[in-house]
């Protein structure tokens, strides 16, 4: 059986992590191809509902990447994002999906290597956890769903 390749959505602040992704590309850094980057105007624009609906669509992991504390372009957006992520982690634990599938990372714009490191770290974490039970395209789940495949 092929190794499970997780699908991970990374909500990235345009002032830091998204710019760091560009830098990682310019530096020709290799990082996990499992992440799908979504540009956000600020990590503080993330909402509880958006994270949950992303999981509902079957992704295996989600992370939000924002600025270092004190560096937010909008002053406290990253602080708010951290609190929201903590709240959604609690919900995920309560409903049985597991809060460890969600994380917040600080990725400054100047650190392309940190962007690549975070992408690899999250991919490895989700690979260890296995596919989300909501991921209908994952091999094990497809069988449960009656042979549905990607």
């Amino acid at each position: 059986m092929p190794e499970f390749e997780p699908k991970i959505v990374a909500f990235c602040c345009r002032y830091c992590a998204y710019t760091a992704a560009d830098l990682a590309g310019s530096m020709r850094l290799q990082y996990s191809p499992n992440i799908r980057v979504v540009e956000m105007p600020c990590s503080g624009t993330i909402e509880h509902g958006l994270i949950l609906s992303t999981f509902e669509k079957g992704v295996d992991g989600v992370y939000i990447a924002g600025c270092n504390l004190g560096d937010c372009h909008f002053l406290k957006g990253n602080v708010r994002a951290i609190k929201r992520v903590a709240a959604v982690k609690k919900i995920l634990d309560e409903i049985g999906l597991g809060g460890e599938r969600l994380e917040f990372f600080h990725v400054p714009a100047s650190e392309g290597t940190k962007f690549a490191q975070v992408a690899n770290e999250m991919t490895e974490r989700i690979r260890q956890l296995g596919p989300s039970p909501l991921n209908k395209n994952a091999a094990g789940n497809a069988q449960k769903e009656g042979g549905q495949t990607a």
Partner: peptide
Amino acid sequence: SAIRIKRTLE
């Protein structure tokens, strides 16, 4: 959304 996910898992 939370309850939909919970029910799907169950």
